[in-house]
């Protein structure tokens, strides 16, 4: 099994080493699979993702993406690497002064201007339709869209550069159960449609983790508590994880 992201003894402190948010994370995220990173609030999930995206530097340890160590990369190389990654933000983070179609065209205009305006528009429309958006909404502003629609546009934008790694930051937080299921299905269908794509989902929703995850990583207090398949989590003897899993399953 090849690895998309390999993290070794990752430590991160924001106050010069007094307190560590990440306390020696060792993690391998397999290629072509949906990996769900779960954990309570404040366990370092977002900090971990920022390391994967190269947005912050580790205090110590290493983060390797497709066998390339991020901290040894130049600024241009990090930008090139980020073009291979797409991210769907918690609240979609759409540019509110751009229309739906302009939002999706934006990354293409920035990184592939040689395609020309009409080709960029064609790709953007294709990505929006793949994400389940209807043409009638293409010229609307994000403020005119519902929460679910915004997620779809955010996903279309994340897909616009055909990324090899797709990251979803708490995609179902604050959504009702129907929308939650819709977003989960969208993640799965997107993952199945893109050949060779690696999906990383940050969540504290155990139901979603079991529904979509092929590989689950549980973080607690800045360390990896357990990594394995949903079945491994169901069969674990660890009392803390069992309680977490039982609660999640009972709720489901």
């Amino acid at each position: 099994m090849s690895t998309a992201v390999e993290i070794t003894d990752l430590r991160k402190s924001f106050d010069g080493g007094n307190t560590f948010i990440l306390k020696g994370i060792n993690l391998q995220i397999p290629k072509d699979k949906v990996t769900v990173i779960i954990g309570f609030s404040g366990t370092g999930k977002s900090v971990l993702i920022k390391h994967i995206l190269g947005l912050i530097e580790p205090t110590s340890g290493s983060v390797r993406i497709f066998d390339h160590e991020i901290k040894h990369m130049s600024e241009d190389e990090v930008i090139q690497l980020r073009c291979k990654m797409g991210m769907l933000f918690q609240h979609a983070a759409l540019f509110d002064d751009m229309t739906v179609i302009e939002n999706v065209m934006f990354p293409l205009k920035e990184h592939r201007p040689e395609l020309g305006k009409s080709e960029i528009r064609r790709i953007a429309e294709e990505k929006l339709i793949q994400s389940g958006m209807e043409e009638i909404h293409f010229n609307k502003l994000p403020a005119e869209l519902s929460g679910g629609m915004r997620k779809r546009v955010g996903l279309a934008r994340a897909l616009s550069l055909d990324p090899e790694i797709l990251i979803y930051d708490e995609p179902t937080t604050g959504l009702d159960p129907i929308l939650t299921e819709m977003v989960d299905d969208l993640i799965l269908s997107t993952h199945r449609r893109i050949e060779g794509a690696t999906s990383i989902v940050i969540s504290h929703d155990l139901n979603a983790a079991f529904r979509i995850g092929e590989n689950i990583v549980m973080l607690d207090k800045g360390t990896v508590l357990m990594q394995g398949t949903p079945q491994d989590f169901l069969n674990t003897d660890n009392k803390f994880i069992r309680r977490f899993v039982d609660k999640g399953i009972r709720r489901e």
Binding site: L53, L55, V78, I79, Q80, R82, C83, M85, M87, F89, Q90, H91, A93, L94, F95, D96, F106, P107, E110, H111
Partner: peptide, 16 residues
């Protein structure tokens, strides 16, 4: 507003 709604983070993630 762009900062608190993660739009600036989105730019960075897009390599801009």
């Amino acid at each position: 507003t762009m900062r608190v709604s993660e739009q600036i983070d989105a730019l960075e993630v897009m390599g801009v």
